[in-house]
Amino acid sequence: MMSYFTEANSAETVNARMDPATNPRLAVIMASLVRHLHAFAKDVTLTQEEWETAIAFLTRTGQMCSGERQEFILLSDVLGLSMLVDAINNRRPEGATENTVFGPFHVPDAPIREMGANISLDGKGESCLFEGRVLDLDGQPVEGACVDVWSDNADGYYDVQQPGIQPRWNNRGRFFTGPDGAYAFRGIKPVSYPIPDDGPVGQMLGQLGRHPYRPAHMHYLVTAPGFQKLVTHTFVGGDDYLASDAVFGVKTTLVAPFEPVTSGDTAWRSPFDFVLVRE
Rank of each mutant, 00 (worst) to 15 (best):
D198V: 02
V277S: 14
D77Q: 11
P271H: 02
P141N: 05
D43I: 02
F176L: 15
M83C: 01
G226W: 02
L242K: 04
L254K: 03
A56Y: 08
V231G: 00
L205I: 12
F102M: 15
M18S: 14
Q140W: 07
D152K: 12
T232C: 00
L84V: 10
M115A: 07
S151N: 11
L135M: 14
A54C: 07
D197G: 11
V255G: 04
T266V: 15
V78T: 03
Q63W: 00
D152M: 05
G132W: 02
S120A: 13
V201D: 08
N153D: 06
L208A: 08
Q63P: 00
L46V: 08
V191S: 09
V101C: 03
E131K: 14
D265S: 09
Q228N: 04
V236K: 07
D43G: 06
V275D: 00
L129I: 13
T177A: 12
L254A: 06
A21Y: 06
L121V: 02
Y193M: 06
R91K: 15
Y4S: 03
E52F: 09
Y213N: 11
V107S: 11
S151Y: 08
I119G: 05
K42W: 01
A11P: 03
A110M: 11
E143F: 01
E49Y: 04
E126I: 00
Y183E: 12
F272C: 06
S244K: 01
L135R: 13
L129V: 09
L230V: 08
P196Y: 03
R210C: 00
T253S: 15
